Every structure is written in structure tokens, then in C-alpha cells.
Amino acid sequence: MKKSPQIEQAFFASWVISLIAFGGSLYFSEVMKFIPCELCWYQRIFMYPLVILLGVAYAKKDFSMSRYAVILSVIGGSISLYHYLIQKVPALHEWGSACGIIPCNTDYINWLGFITIPFLALVAFILIAGLQVFIWKKEKETDAA
């Protein structure tokens, strides 16, 4: 059965978002020479497989893979949220100083006073998870029709 164009577009958009996050993290570490902290590495562990998973799933039109994308996104997003809170909530700021070689409360970027690298990762994880939920709803509508 042919999937609706909205499902395909949402899946493609999810893959593009993961690709941008992947490229952005490599840009910050390899070009800007920002050394990732321990929590940044954990976020990468959950974002990088999404590039492959979503890309292959989109190419094969296997949208059942969205279940796995949501799992990776929710776990990665939880880590991003925790990391962001360590950076921005004064009461939690001390927790980031014992994170490893690079303290997790280090703000390499702080655009507009609130946009940090963990914030960017969190937005990517939320968008990917949200698009997967949209796909699930559209698939149910398509199957019901």
C-alpha cells in the first residue's frame, strides 16, 4: 500500500533534521575545535544512529522504523534537557563541574542568552520525535480509511 505524501515528507524531514544535527556537532568539534563534554558524547550516541536509521528507512520506505527513532529521540532528548538544565539553572550548575575533562556546564555558545549546544540538540530530538508521532497518527488515519 502506498503511503501518503505527508508521511514520506515527515520522514524525510526527520532525516534532514538528524543530518543537520550530525553535521552541526561535527562542525562544533572538528572545525570550531570545541571539545565535547561527557554529556555531549551521550547525546551524539543517540543522534548519530538516527542519521543512518532514518535515511535507510526513508530510502526503503519502511516507516515502521519510526518506533526506534522515537526511542532514540526521547532518550537523547532527556540527556539534552538534563545537560541544558545543568548549564542554565543556577542550583544545578555545580553538577556539571564534575562531568569529566570538560565540565558539562561549559557554554561554548550562548546565542541570545539561551541557545546552547545542548539546546540545539534538544530541539532536534523534539522535532524528530514529534514528526514520528505525526507519522504514527497519519498511518492510523490511512489504515482506517
Rank of each mutant, 00 (worst) to 15 (best):
Q9P: 00
P5E: 04
I86M: 14
W41D: 10
S80H: 15
A10N: 07
L92K: 01
K140L: 14
Y48R: 01
L81R: 14
K140F: 06
K60D: 15
L19V: 09
R44N: 13
Y68W: 13
W41V: 10
P5L: 05
A10P: 00
A10S: 12
P90R: 01
W111P: 00
T142I: 07
L131P: 04
P103C: 05
Q87F: 00
E94P: 00
F11V: 02
I102D: 03
L19N: 00
G55M: 14
V31R: 01
Q9M: 06
L120Q: 11
S78A: 14
I71Y: 12
W95F: 09
H93S: 08
C104Y: 03
L112H: 05
T106C: 03
S73P: 12
S4E: 01
L50I: 08
I126G: 12
Q87V: 00
P103T: 03
W136H: 09
T106E: 08
F134G: 00
K88L: 03
V56D: 12
L39Q: 07
I86T: 10
Q9W: 03
V74D: 06
Y48T: 02
T116N: 07
C40Y: 11
E139R: 14
Y27Q: 05
K2T: 10
P118A: 10
Y82N: 04
Y108E: 06
I17A: 12
A21F: 08
S25P: 03
C37S: 12
L72Y: 07
E38C: 08
G96V: 02
C37Q: 00
K88M: 12
A10M: 02
